[in-house]
């Protein structure tokens, strides 16, 4: 009986859109997300299993075939994949690690346009120049009073990963900042 039932999935930012001068805000599609933790010795084995080379350089990310690994700390990566669940690829791996599904903990906002960096700098204290935070750069940081993971996916497109209950605040703050002209 239960198998026949289906219930609706609702995006935390359903219905949120913003388009302003120089910047647009778009809720990102649902995605599989895994918090991956492991010692240095496990990195090669896990990279093989995941099909993406876990980056070892701070503030960098690697994307291969739609799967991205973001360096968050010396033993911590955020895996994002819209199509297939990284947890599935980690099932039988012997290499010491801890993987936790956080697909629903986070949601994401895409901030795009020539004014994207300025709008994010309305609440984020990091240097977002291309020199300091180029394409592919990623970092856990602060936006206003919320913690985010900031990831520059293209020169003028940032992805902001945020816990779901903070997403409304972050979206609202970005929209307010975007009204300032980007």
């Amino acid at each position: 009986m239960a198998e026949a039932m289906t219930i609706e999935r609702r995006h935390p930012l359903a219905g949120h859109v913003f388009a302003g001068t120089g910047v647009a805000l778009t809720p990102a599609h649902a995605a599989f997300r895994t918090s991956l933790r492991c010692p240095s010795a496990s990195v090669p084995g896990l990279s093989d299993a995941l099909g993406v080379a876990l980056p070892r350089t701070p503030k960098t990310s690697v994307t291969e075939k739609g799967r991205s690994a973001l360096w968050l700390g010396p033993d911590e990566w955020l895996l994002i994949d819209e199509k297939t669940d990284p947890m599935a690829d980690l099932g039988g791996i012997d290499a010491l690690h801890a993987a936790v599904d956080i697909s629903h903990r986070n949601t994401a906002i895409l901030v795009s346009g020539p004014g994207a960096a300025d709008v994010i700098n309305a609440g984020c204290p990091q240097d977002l120049s291309m020199e300091a935070f180029g394409t592919g750069a990623c970092s856990r940081t602060i936006f206003g009073k919320a913690e985010i993971v900031l990831w520059r996916v293209k020169p003028s497109v940032f992805r902001i990963e945020v816990w779901r209950s903070f997403s409304d605040y972050v979206f609202g703050y970005l929209a307010e900042a975007a009204r300032d002209g980007g």
């Binding site: 609440g123 206003g144 209950s165 609202g172 900042a177």
Partner: peptide, 16 residues
């Protein structure tokens, strides 16, 4: 204060 007033003063967290 900047942007941080009204609804943006502090995050309001709501459950799903």
């Amino acid at each position: 204060v900047g942007h941080g007033r009204g609804a943006l003063f502090d995050p309001t967290r709501r459950t799903p």
